[in-house]
Amino acid sequence: MPSFDLFLGPNGWGKPLLSAALMTVALSLSGLAVGALFGAVLAHARIGGGLVLRSLADAVTTILRGVPDLLVIYLFYFGGSGLLSWAGHAAGYDGFIGLPVFLTGTLALGVVSAAYQAEVFRGAFNAIPRGQIEAARAAGMRNVLMFRRILVPQVLRHALPGLGNVWQLILKDSALISVIGLVELLRAAQIGAGSTRQPFLFYSAALVLYLVITSVSGQVFRWAETRSLRPFRRA
């Protein structure tokens, strides 16, 4: 069977496709982490910031939600290094700061998902009863301790379902990172399709791998959700 050799032969495309799938997972995971950071900052600005900070965060959110992700990724790719160098220059460093393509992809995914993550965190924060925060203050907890003991565990729990959705979004958006040259799953399929003139076969293979990744990780999130609710289950 020719397609058997094509994928599993000694010079087959199976291995590059699989490692590209791993790249998709790695890229999405780091995108999720960076996006969580950006998102937390945005959420913080929208909850606790002054008027200026709040409107700034609103503006950023509006832009991120209104501009196609493809454009954000392109802008980040071409503009990112220039901006970094400019910032480095202002800080007294006089060289050029380049970014490896994986890092660019991570940052782009982080930025693209930040607005969604901010919404998730804001909703989760609002779900914490105000009384708990007042109680923590009354018990003499300082901000950091309160953040660590009261806010983070609960925000994370309330945020889990929302984060699961964001994760699926990031996974699918990671396909767009193919346009800046990172060999993730879609690009590997594209390369294979172009090289062998078998687009149907290669896109089908990638489609199946995407389905595996999204459904397995979906299960993981559901498991985490059930687990995080365990202390609250009545016997």
Partner: peptide, 23 residues
């Protein structure tokens, strides 16, 4: 719904355009 929500739109587009072009 499972297939279309579980895969990126870009690959669906490539599948319909280049993939079906083969047939």
């Amino acid at each position: 719904v499972f297939v279309f929500r579980g895969t990126p739109l870009l690959i669906q587009l490539f599948m319909i355009y280049y993939g079906l072009g083969q047939f």
